[in-house]
Simulated scan of single mutants.
Amino acid sequence: MIINDQMIDDIALGATVLGTGGGGDPYSGSLMAKVAIANASKPVELIALEDVADHWMTVPSSMIGAPTVALEKLNSRDQMLIAFNAMESALNETIMATFPIEVGGFNSLIPILVAASKGIPVIDCDAMGRAFPESQMVTFYLDGLPSAPNTLADEKGNVATLHPIDGIWSENFARALTEQMGGSAAICDYPMRGSELKRSALGATLTKAMQIGKAIRNANEAGNSAIESVLNIVGGHRIISGKIIDIERNTQGGFATGGVIIERLQNNTVKNDIDTVYVHFQNELLLAHKGKSAAYMNDSNLLASTPDLISILDHETGQPITTERLHYGQRVDLIAYPCDSKWRTPKGIEVAGPNYFGYDVSYTSIESLAFKINLEE
């Protein structure tokens, strides 16, 4: 499948939904990807995971850092290519294909830019099925695959090559280095053969993003409910239709952290007793519970939790809103939906469940929570 401008727009839109508030700004990413395919020496192909040859060397292309930084410091095309070329040098091998490490906003589109410049295909897969804030929160880490080497580059031309012993140390080193690089950097990690990729990656996630983006676009053109279209695709539940009445946002430690409070709209169609919801985020939306304060968090008030996906969509258009663009007064719908089954294993919950982020609640699936709190319209 040859990637074109419409596919880029649909991927950007759908990936921002699946990115659960993170993954970077989709608008700048889509512009860069469109310019890249227009200037490419040959068409950029999106290939299925099963079509990857076992012997190919494959490497993801992505950005690391706080999304809020990218609003003021635009990412550079060159830094992404520098990090990718540095990986080829570290491996002493030609990379045959690239793919996104996560499905989310800007990070879903970087591989298109790199592929266009290198003349290689983009693989229809990722390692999260969503976006997560830390480097070890990938299926590759769950499956015991090595992260090293890592290559990072900033917009000034600085390059670093790391050889961490695992994904945890990759996160520790790369995050600290990213802060020195201005809070945002290009990164390549988890190089692997096609045989390993096919065993561990989540397939067809860019296709799913494209499907969601197209559904939102078609629903708005036809005057239908875009949010209903999204819920049908992801198998999700609408927690609340409301207005943002407060938001706290900080940039620290290489992350955008904080919380947002959503108050029920008078015409909320969700028939439950939820009047206000507090949503916690660390780049991505991680946990939602009843109440107007983080202090209300407990198992009885829990509404949705990582590793399941939580998204905030515009109430009228269904357009996804990233955490850095949330603001007071927005009318939004908060939805939640199931993660990939790999994240519901004991190791998956240990790596990306609520306790890892310091939330004193037990992980409960969105299906169970939806039944418990009657998330029916």
Rank of each mutant, 00 (worst) to 15 (best):
I239S: 01
I310V: 15
T345N: 04
S41F: 02
G358Y: 03
F255Y: 14
F255G: 11
N298W: 07
I310A: 10
H315K: 09
A148N: 13
A36H: 11
M96H: 07
L309A: 10
D340Q: 09
A86N: 08
E221Y: 05
A12T: 04
G19L: 02
V260R: 04
I212K: 00
I239D: 00
G236K: 00
G213K: 09
E228L: 05
D124Q: 09
L265A: 11
G291C: 06
E196C: 00
A115C: 02
M181W: 04
F132L: 10
L326E: 08
T257G: 14
L81R: 06
E377M: 08
E72L: 12
D143C: 02
S76G: 08
N75D: 04
D308Q: 12
N39C: 07
L31P: 15
Y337A: 06
H280G: 12
A336G: 04
G253W: 07
V260G: 07
A131C: 12
G157D: 13
M96L: 01
V332K: 07
M87P: 12
L369S: 03
Y190V: 00
S170E: 13
T151A: 12
M32Y: 12
I64Y: 11
D275T: 11
N268W: 02
F106H: 13
N283A: 06
G24E: 09
T317D: 07
M7L: 07
L286D: 14
E316Y: 08
N220R: 03
P320A: 06
T98H: 05
K347I: 05
L313Q: 11
T207K: 03
E93R: 15
H289V: 13
P354E: 08
V260D: 03
Y296K: 12
K73F: 10
L326I: 11
I261D: 10
T306M: 08
Q282N: 15
T251W: 07
F140W: 06
A33Y: 10
E196R: 01
I2A: 10
A33V: 06
N218V: 13
D78N: 09
H327C: 04
G348P: 05
G213F: 06
M32W: 14
S305C: 14
Q282S: 15
A185N: 11
E72K: 15
L265Y: 03
N4D: 15
N298R: 12
Y296E: 15
L18K: 03
A38D: 15
L46R: 00
V59Q: 02
N301Q: 03
L309M: 13
T323G: 10
D126A: 01
E102I: 07
S28F: 15
I168W: 14
H280K: 14
T364H: 05
E179I: 10
V234F: 01
I261M: 04
D340L: 00
V17R: 01
G183P: 14
A127N: 03
I261Q: 09
A186P: 01
T94K: 14
D246A: 11
